[in-house]
């Protein structure tokens, strides 16, 4: 109950901030909002389960967006590389499965199994978490670092600068941000934009 109140309170605070800001959602420096969501293995995963790690690479993605599909292997590679360094991936699908049945929980289970996801893939059925973070498209990454006050957002945006071709990437935004965070530096590019599928909001 305590956690729920905290969640609602955090959400209310973030909405209040958003009402004044030009762009909605969390930005570098903000405190991350905790969540408890159902994983594709049936278990519930909470951000607090990761409290003893250095951070989390939170990725809003989905089953069916061509951009998400183009990045799937890169997301798997991110987890492979950074899980052992204390920054595992958590993926969240917030897309409306009523209008878009390909985004349903059962299709998530199939996708995670087909692609051998080595990280949790969580269902944000109410879309509250996507809205609270200000996730707008897929894939959309939030790099969270554990700190005294809980998790703090250090980076928000795209994975790298080339969705079309992983081999032609020049700047790896997320990897650069993690490197800087691990060295105790401020992230030099804490925010990037990208084209992507819009998260399918419920009507």
């Amino acid at each position: 109950m305590k956690k729920l109140i905290f969640l609602l309170l955090s959400f209310a605070i973030s909405l209040a901030v958003n009402a004044q800001g030009a762009t909605a959602g969390l930005k570098a420096g903000d405190t991350a909002i905790p969540f408890k969501l159902k994983n594709v293995d049936g278990n519930v995963v909470s951000l607090n389960d990761y409290a003893n790690l250095r951070g989390v690479i939170l990725v809003f993605t989905c089953n069916n967006c061509p951009f998400s599909l183009a990045y799937e292997d890169r997301i798997i590679a991110l987890n492979k590389k950074y899980d052992i360094m204390g920054f595992p991936v958590i993926a969240i699908n917030s897309s409306d499965s009523v209008a878009y049945p390909d985004e349903s929980y059962s299709k998530m289970v199939i996708r995670a199994s087909d692609k051998n996801f080595n990280f949790p893939y969580l269902l944000d059925d109410s879309q509250i978490i996507a809205k609270a973070y200000g996730a707008v498209r897929t894939p959309h990454v939030f790099l969270l670092q554990h700190s005294d006050i809980g998790f703090a957002v250090r980076y928000d945006g795209a994975i790298d600068d080339n969705s079309d071709d992983a081999d032609a990437v020049k700047i790896k935004y997320v990897e650069n941000a993690i490197t800087e965070v691990m060295r105790g530096k401020l992230v030099s590019q804490p925010f990037t934009k990208a084209i992507g599928c819009t998260i399918k909001w419920k009507k």
């Binding site: 795209a158 080339n162 599928c197």
Partner: peptide
Amino acid sequence: SNYNNWINLVNPQWQGA
């Protein structure tokens, strides 16, 4: 597809969706 380089030219308020 180097989106971050040009999305803001169109409109800084556009998130890219």
